[in-house]
Amino acid sequence: MLEIKNLHVKLEDEDKQILKGLDLTVEAGKVHAIMGPNGSGKSTLSYVLSGRDGYEVTEGSATLAGQDLLELEPEERAALGVFLAFQYPVEIPGVGNMTFLRTAVNAQRKARGEEELSAAEFLKTIRAKAKDLKIDADMLKRPVNVGFSGGEKKRNEILQMAMLEPKMCILDETDSGLDVDAMKLVAEGVNALRDEGRGFLVITHYQRLLDHIKPDVVHILADGKIVKTGGPELALEVENNGYTDILAEVS
Protein backbone atom coordinates (compact mmCIF):
# COMPACT_ATOMS: atom_id res chain seq x y z
CA MET A 1 0.00 0.00 0.00
CA LEU A 2 2.35 2.73 1.29
CA GLU A 3 5.96 2.36 0.38
CA ILE A 4 8.60 4.77 1.61
CA LYS A 5 12.18 4.31 0.48
CA ASN A 6 15.26 6.08 1.74
CA LEU A 7 13.30 9.25 2.43
CA HIS A 8 15.41 12.32 3.19
CA VAL A 9 13.59 15.50 4.14
CA LYS A 10 14.86 18.89 5.23
CA LEU A 11 13.08 22.05 6.29
CA GLU A 12 12.64 24.43 3.36
CA ASP A 13 13.53 27.55 5.30
CA GLU A 14 16.53 26.33 7.22
CA ASP A 15 19.31 23.90 6.64
CA LYS A 16 17.96 21.27 8.96
CA GLN A 17 17.68 17.65 7.93
CA ILE A 18 14.75 15.95 9.67
CA LEU A 19 14.33 12.59 7.95
CA LYS A 20 17.56 10.85 7.08
CA GLY A 21 16.84 7.78 5.02
CA LEU A 22 13.52 6.44 6.25
CA ASP A 23 12.31 3.10 4.92
CA LEU A 24 8.82 1.89 5.65
CA THR A 25 6.23 -0.32 4.01
CA VAL A 26 2.64 -0.45 5.24
CA GLU A 27 0.61 -3.28 3.73
CA ALA A 28 -3.11 -3.08 3.07
CA GLY A 29 -5.08 -4.38 5.99
CA LYS A 30 -2.28 -3.74 8.50
CA VAL A 31 -1.82 -1.26 11.30
CA HIS A 32 1.69 0.03 11.72
CA ALA A 33 2.62 2.14 14.69
CA ILE A 34 5.50 4.58 14.79
CA MET A 35 6.86 5.57 18.15
CA GLY A 36 9.77 7.75 18.90
CA PRO A 37 11.12 10.46 21.14
CA ASN A 38 10.40 14.17 20.61
CA GLY A 39 12.12 15.59 17.56
CA SER A 40 12.66 12.24 15.89
CA GLY A 41 10.66 13.31 12.81
CA LYS A 42 7.27 11.68 13.43
CA SER A 43 5.13 14.70 12.59
CA THR A 44 7.38 15.67 9.70
CA LEU A 45 6.74 12.26 8.18
CA SER A 46 2.97 12.76 8.40
CA TYR A 47 3.18 16.25 6.89
CA VAL A 48 5.48 15.19 4.05
CA LEU A 49 3.14 12.35 3.16
CA SER A 50 0.12 14.64 3.13
CA GLY A 51 1.86 17.38 1.17
CA ARG A 52 2.24 20.30 3.53
CA ASP A 53 4.44 23.20 2.41
CA GLY A 54 7.69 23.92 4.15
CA TYR A 55 9.47 20.61 3.62
CA GLU A 56 11.90 19.63 0.92
CA VAL A 57 12.45 16.04 -0.09
CA THR A 58 16.12 15.76 -0.98
CA GLU A 59 16.25 12.04 -1.65
CA GLY A 60 14.09 8.94 -1.71
CA SER A 61 10.51 8.20 -2.62
CA ALA A 62 7.02 7.62 -1.24
CA THR A 63 4.37 5.81 -3.23
CA LEU A 64 0.80 4.75 -2.58
CA ALA A 65 -0.27 1.67 -4.53
CA GLY A 66 2.63 2.35 -6.85
CA GLN A 67 1.82 6.01 -7.49
CA ASP A 68 4.38 8.66 -6.62
CA LEU A 69 2.91 10.80 -3.85
CA LEU A 70 5.61 13.41 -3.52
CA GLU A 71 4.90 15.07 -6.87
CA LEU A 72 1.20 15.54 -6.08
CA GLU A 73 -0.74 18.40 -4.55
CA PRO A 74 -2.34 17.71 -1.14
CA GLU A 75 -5.83 17.46 -2.69
CA GLU A 76 -4.58 14.96 -5.29
CA ARG A 77 -3.05 12.80 -2.57
CA ALA A 78 -6.32 12.94 -0.68
CA ALA A 79 -8.24 11.82 -3.76
CA LEU A 80 -5.79 8.93 -4.13
CA GLY A 81 -6.63 7.86 -0.61
CA VAL A 82 -4.21 9.54 1.78
CA PHE A 83 -5.76 10.84 4.97
CA LEU A 84 -3.99 12.61 7.80
CA ALA A 85 -5.74 12.89 11.14
CA PHE A 86 -4.15 16.07 12.47
CA GLN A 87 -2.52 16.31 15.84
CA TYR A 88 -3.99 19.81 16.08
CA PRO A 89 -7.13 19.97 13.92
CA VAL A 90 -7.56 23.46 12.46
CA GLU A 91 -10.46 25.69 13.45
CA ILE A 92 -12.22 27.27 10.47
CA PRO A 93 -14.72 29.93 11.51
CA GLY A 94 -17.53 30.53 9.05
CA VAL A 95 -17.37 27.12 7.35
CA GLY A 96 -20.03 24.72 8.61
CA ASN A 97 -18.78 21.25 9.46
CA MET A 98 -21.41 19.66 7.26
CA THR A 99 -20.67 21.93 4.27
CA PHE A 100 -16.98 21.20 4.68
CA LEU A 101 -17.50 17.44 4.74
CA ARG A 102 -19.87 17.39 1.80
CA THR A 103 -17.50 19.58 -0.23
CA ALA A 104 -14.60 17.28 0.63
CA VAL A 105 -16.43 14.04 -0.10
CA ASN A 106 -17.72 15.30 -3.43
CA ALA A 107 -14.42 16.91 -4.44
CA GLN A 108 -12.71 13.55 -3.97
CA ARG A 109 -15.43 11.68 -5.82
CA LYS A 110 -15.21 14.16 -8.67
CA ALA A 111 -11.42 13.85 -8.82
CA ARG A 112 -11.79 10.08 -9.09
CA GLY A 113 -14.39 10.38 -11.80
CA GLU A 114 -17.19 9.12 -9.55
CA GLU A 115 -20.66 10.57 -9.27
CA GLU A 116 -21.19 13.11 -6.50
CA LEU A 117 -23.33 12.14 -3.53
CA SER A 118 -26.77 13.68 -3.43
CA ALA A 119 -27.65 15.78 -0.40
CA ALA A 120 -29.99 13.04 0.83
CA GLU A 121 -27.44 10.24 0.47
CA PHE A 122 -24.81 12.35 2.14
CA LEU A 123 -27.09 13.21 5.06
CA LYS A 124 -28.06 9.62 5.61
CA THR A 125 -24.44 8.44 5.64
CA ILE A 126 -23.12 11.19 7.86
CA ARG A 127 -25.90 10.79 10.41
CA ALA A 128 -25.16 7.10 10.86
CA LYS A 129 -21.42 7.65 11.14
CA ALA A 130 -21.72 10.64 13.43
CA LYS A 131 -23.93 8.64 15.75
CA ASP A 132 -21.29 5.92 16.13
CA LEU A 133 -18.79 8.57 17.18
CA LYS A 134 -21.30 10.26 19.51
CA ILE A 135 -21.20 13.41 17.39
CA ASP A 136 -24.51 15.24 17.71
CA ALA A 137 -26.36 17.29 15.13
CA ASP A 138 -25.16 20.49 16.75
CA MET A 139 -21.51 19.57 16.20
CA LEU A 140 -22.24 18.94 12.54
CA LYS A 141 -23.80 22.35 12.15
CA ARG A 142 -21.14 24.33 13.96
CA PRO A 143 -18.16 25.79 12.09
CA VAL A 144 -15.35 23.30 11.60
CA ASN A 145 -13.69 22.61 14.97
CA VAL A 146 -14.60 26.04 16.33
CA GLY A 147 -15.26 25.81 20.05
CA PHE A 148 -14.81 22.02 19.98
CA SER A 149 -13.15 20.40 22.98
CA GLY A 150 -9.95 18.41 22.42
CA GLY A 151 -11.95 15.19 22.34
CA GLU A 152 -14.56 16.60 19.96
CA LYS A 153 -11.87 17.74 17.56
CA LYS A 154 -10.32 14.27 17.45
CA ARG A 155 -13.69 12.60 17.02
CA ASN A 156 -14.37 15.02 14.19
CA GLU A 157 -11.13 13.89 12.55
CA ILE A 158 -12.26 10.29 12.75
CA LEU A 159 -15.67 11.23 11.36
CA GLN A 160 -13.95 12.81 8.36
CA MET A 161 -11.91 9.67 7.94
CA ALA A 162 -15.04 7.54 8.07
CA MET A 163 -16.77 9.72 5.47
CA LEU A 164 -13.81 9.95 3.10
CA GLU A 165 -12.96 6.24 3.32
CA PRO A 166 -9.26 6.65 2.56
CA LYS A 167 -6.91 3.82 1.62
CA MET A 168 -4.09 5.00 3.83
CA CYS A 169 -4.87 6.55 7.20
CA ILE A 170 -2.15 8.42 9.02
CA LEU A 171 -2.96 9.31 12.61
CA ASP A 172 -0.64 11.93 14.05
CA GLU A 173 -0.68 11.69 17.85
CA THR A 174 -4.42 11.26 17.85
CA ASP A 175 -4.24 10.38 21.55
CA SER A 176 -2.78 13.74 22.58
CA GLY A 177 -5.17 15.77 24.66
CA LEU A 178 -7.62 12.91 25.14
CA ASP A 179 -8.86 11.43 28.38
CA VAL A 180 -9.31 7.66 28.63
CA ASP A 181 -12.97 7.65 27.61
CA ALA A 182 -12.41 9.90 24.63
CA MET A 183 -9.45 7.79 23.58
CA LYS A 184 -11.58 4.66 23.68
CA LEU A 185 -14.23 6.30 21.54
CA VAL A 186 -11.66 7.42 18.99
CA ALA A 187 -10.02 4.00 18.98
CA GLU A 188 -13.38 2.33 18.40
CA GLY A 189 -13.92 4.65 15.45
CA VAL A 190 -10.56 3.68 14.02
CA ASN A 191 -11.07 -0.03 14.65
CA ALA A 192 -14.41 0.11 12.86
CA LEU A 193 -12.53 1.28 9.78
CA ARG A 194 -9.96 -1.51 9.87
CA ASP A 195 -10.37 -3.31 6.65
CA GLU A 196 -8.41 -5.55 4.32
CA GLY A 197 -8.05 -2.82 1.77
CA ARG A 198 -6.90 -0.12 4.15
CA GLY A 199 -3.55 0.59 5.77
CA PHE A 200 -2.95 2.54 8.97
CA LEU A 201 0.05 4.42 10.22
CA VAL A 202 -0.44 5.37 13.86
CA ILE A 203 2.03 7.87 15.18
CA THR A 204 2.18 8.12 18.93
CA HIS A 205 4.36 8.89 21.89
CA TYR A 206 2.71 6.48 24.20
CA GLN A 207 1.81 2.86 24.25
CA ARG A 208 -1.63 3.39 25.76
CA LEU A 209 -3.34 4.25 22.44
CA LEU A 210 -2.00 0.95 21.13
CA ASP A 211 -3.88 -0.88 23.88
CA HIS A 212 -7.00 0.19 22.05
CA ILE A 213 -5.78 0.20 18.46
CA LYS A 214 -3.79 -3.01 18.32
CA PRO A 215 -0.92 -2.64 15.86
CA ASP A 216 0.46 -5.42 13.69
CA VAL A 217 3.88 -3.84 13.49
CA VAL A 218 5.66 -1.30 15.70
CA HIS A 219 8.55 0.87 14.51
CA ILE A 220 10.84 3.03 16.53
CA LEU A 221 11.80 6.27 14.81
CA ALA A 222 14.86 8.08 16.05
CA ASP A 223 16.87 10.86 14.46
CA GLY A 224 15.05 10.59 11.15
CA LYS A 225 15.28 6.84 10.63
CA ILE A 226 13.48 3.68 11.63
CA VAL A 227 15.91 2.13 14.07
CA LYS A 228 13.96 -0.86 15.21
CA THR A 229 10.92 -2.81 14.05
CA GLY A 230 8.99 -5.43 15.94
CA GLY A 231 5.58 -6.61 17.04
CA PRO A 232 3.25 -5.10 19.63
CA GLU A 233 5.68 -6.17 22.36
CA LEU A 234 8.05 -3.44 21.21
CA ALA A 235 5.55 -0.81 22.29
CA LEU A 236 5.37 -2.40 25.72
CA GLU A 237 9.12 -2.33 25.95
CA VAL A 238 9.08 1.41 25.28
CA GLU A 239 6.38 1.88 27.87
CA ASN A 240 8.38 0.04 30.50
CA ASN A 241 11.91 1.14 29.76
CA GLY A 242 11.64 4.35 27.77
CA TYR A 243 13.51 5.01 24.56
CA THR A 244 16.98 5.22 26.05
CA ASP A 245 17.60 1.50 26.25
CA ILE A 246 16.39 0.82 22.73
CA LEU A 247 18.40 3.69 21.31
CA ALA A 248 21.54 2.54 23.16
CA GLU A 249 21.01 -0.97 21.88
CA VAL A 250 20.79 0.04 18.23
CA SER A 251 23.53 2.63 18.18
Binding site: E75, A79, T103
Partner: peptide, 16 residues
Protein backbone atom coordinates in the same frame (compact mmCIF):
# COMPACT_ATOMS: atom_id res chain seq x y z
CA UNK B 1 -2.52 29.01 5.16
CA UNK B 2 -3.20 26.50 7.94
CA UNK B 3 -6.89 26.39 7.14
CA UNK B 4 -6.15 26.19 3.42
CA UNK B 5 -3.88 23.17 3.91
CA UNK B 6 -6.44 21.51 6.16
CA UNK B 7 -9.12 21.82 3.47
CA UNK B 8 -6.78 20.67 0.71
CA UNK B 9 -5.66 17.68 2.78
CA UNK B 10 -9.31 16.59 2.70
CA UNK B 11 -9.34 16.69 -1.08
CA UNK B 12 -10.75 20.17 -1.69
CA UNK B 13 -8.83 21.80 -4.58
CA UNK B 14 -7.01 25.06 -3.81
CA UNK B 15 -9.40 27.28 -5.76
CA UNK B 16 -12.48 25.79 -4.08
Amino acid sequence: EEALFYLRSRGIPTAD
